[in-house]
Design a protein around this nucleic acid. Structure first.
Lengths: 204, 204
DNA sequence: GCAGATCCTGACCGATCGGTCAACTAGCGT
DNA sequence: ACGCTAGTTGACCGATCGGTCAGGATCTGC
């Protein structure tokens, strides 16, 4: 046998699909879906391009499997919110759940938020888009003022940006996780509270 | 002469460069720089790919010329802010200038904001990145709390998102421009004010 | 040992990528 | 009529794109 020769067919790794999903998500979030090639994903994860296409039927299918868990989670949060009876009580819990969601699925949210328009037609993207609209309608009641809509949009897009792109070059030293969570909670609540409870005087 | 045949060499259009910049900007903002091909830009603008490369040395050079006016403008605003004497007075004018900037260069901001990390190394991007850091440092004074940084990030990323992607599917009916401006002013001021004046008791 | 399933890969496909180049057209001053 | 310049284009280049396919490696159950 040849000495120290690397096998042309490395051993099957246990969680290849998981590794590829994580790698693909990172690339989609930073370079964009259209700008990310299967070769890049394969290289970054240490596989061949063929392996990626073995685990996922296509590039779009890979995107679908990458984003679906986040959408499922957000859908769950929204459903639980609309089903709960109280007003300020359930809304406070919703904001808490929402911030958990932001922190856990920051890359997925960033990927969707900033590319939804150009990826229209892909099933998982359309599903996510419909969910965001429903979320906006639910939080802004029926007839929402322009300001309410903008508050929601800024909270959503702002959080997605801050937790992904902003971290890299805005706060050079990454603050402790719980500190980020606390600050995020304050700001998001401040943004969303007037939308929710119109009578609150949150500015004094 | 052939009847009604279209010329294979259409007449030179007066402002080809301008048209191409605008078309490229729209594509960069929605599909991303890496995901946008010169052919797409050429097709959308009604030129050939060769024409694009005649007016701009390369794809990166095109990006540079597209983004530079926005960066120049933002740099101007920031310079005027740091040079002005008053505290709350100049800050109020800065927020006004900043909102004008947001509304006028929404696509440029969105392009930069969401792709700066993946486009590092391109001169115009690095310049913009440095400017954002300076902007953040200036607004947050020296030692900024995590919350202040997050407030600034959310304002920046949130505005970029809301004014570009959010408009398309969040507020189906596009609100009047002045109404958007007013709402934006309220929310941005609310986000940036505590960052500016540390003596305000914004949390009790 | 061996059949089958699973995982991974290189070779290959047509299409498209960013970019170069020579040719062509039109307008201009002379 | 002439040459010159600016603007536009198709043909073409090597590289890479998403995707297919046949086959090698590894493991299991028999």
């Amino acid at each position: 046998m040849p000495i120290d020769s690397v096998s042309p067919h490395p051993a099957a790794r246990p969680n290849a699909g998981q590794e590829l999903r994580a790698t693909a998500l990172a690339q989609f979030a930073s370079i964009g879906f259209a700008g990310t090639s299967l070769q890049q994903i394969a290289d970054a994860a240490g596989y061949s391009k063929s392996s990626v296409l073995y685990h996922f039927a296509s590039k779009e299918a890979l995107l679908g499997e990458v984003l679906t868990p986040a959408i499922d989670r957000l859908e769950l949060i929204l459903d639980r919110f609309v089903a709960s009876p109280g007003e300020s009580e359930s809304r406070r819990r919703f904001v808490d759940d929402f911030i958990d969601f932001l922190l856990e699925f920051r890359l997925e949210l960033h990927t969707f938020i900033n590319q939804a328009q150009s990826l229209r037609g892909i099933p998982v993207i359309d599903r996510a888009g419909a969910l965001i609209v429903r979320l906006s309608d639910t939080l802004c009641h029926e007839q929402a003022s322009t300001e309410d809509r903008i508050r929601f949009g800024i909270a959503l897009g702002g959080a997605a940006y801050t937790l992904v792109a902003g971290m890299t070059f805005l706060s050079k030293d990454i603050a402790p996780a719980d500190e980020i969570r606390e600050a995020l909670s304050v700001v998001i609540t401040e943004l969303l509270a007037p939308v929710a409870v119109h009578t609150i005087q949150s500015r004094e």
